[in-house]
């Protein structure tokens, strides 16, 4: 029991710290958004770096965690941080969608999947060391290459400030120009619901 508490404690502390910092950042973003901070403001930079570091650290936490429940907790932090990045990009509707669908729906689904598919949720399967090393080298090389290319690329006209698109525009476009994909997505969701219920049904 004591050992288990010791194992859970750092994850719980990390989760609490992450939640507190994300809430504070959200409050700061919400209070500073209407005043339209100047482009390249120091506040924006500080908030971006804080949220970006939280995102990357929690994504790395997903990578290195060995049991699935802890991976799900780190994934929750990652999804929350990415939602904050959407708020920083003035896409507040998308940030809300991310929190509702991903953090509220998909993650719960994954946690239920973990609980339904293992005798003990703390069970761990190890990949061979050589495979982990190879995967690490490949992914690190990919990341370094992508970063170098992205930092050297020039994006014409990408330096100006960001005006936020109002939610009404999204709804209007979704029901005029994008009405066919919208309806197709609705049909797809119904098919998925029926299919998932069929796949997971109880055999007689």
């Amino acid at each position: 029991m004591n050992v288990r508490v010791k194992r859970i404690f750092p994850a719980a502390v990390a989760m609490l710290v992450g939640l507190g910092s994300t809430t504070l950042t959200a409050l700061a973003a919400g209070s500073s958004a209407p005043t339209a901070a100047p482009p390249g403001g120091v506040l924006e930079a500080i908030m971006f770096y804080a949220v970006a570091i939280a995102t990357v650290v929690s994504a790395l936490g997903v990578c290195v965690s060995r049991n699935v429940v802890r991976m799900a907790v780190w994934l929750f932090l990652t999804l929350g941080s990415v939602a904050l990045l959407y708020f920083l990009l003035a896409a507040s509707f998308l940030g809300a969608i991310q929190l509702i669908i991903y953090a509220g729906g998909t993650l719960i689904l994954l946690v239920f999947g973990v609980m339904l598919t293992s005798k003990s949720p703390w069970v761990r399967w190890e990949a061979p060391k050589l495979e982990v090393l190879g995967a690490g080298v490949v992914c690190l090389a990919l990341f370094v290459t992508l970063s170098l290319v992205l930092c050297r690329a020039s994006w014409p006209g990408a330096e100006a400030a960001l005006p936020g698109a109002p939610v009404a525009d999204i709804g209007r476009r979704l029901l005029t120009a994008y009405v066919v994909p919208f309806e197709v997505a609705g049909v797809l969701l119904m098919i998925v619901m029926v299919g998932a219920a069929h796949l997971a049904r109880q055999e007689k």
Binding site: V68, M71, L140, L146
Partner: peptide, 16 residues
């Protein structure tokens, strides 16, 4: 890009 690489690494190394 960091998120993408973390996801690829997770897909490669997890057995669950």
């Amino acid at each position: 890009a960091a998120l993408f690489c973390a996801g690829i690494f997770t897909m490669m190394t997890k057995r669950n």
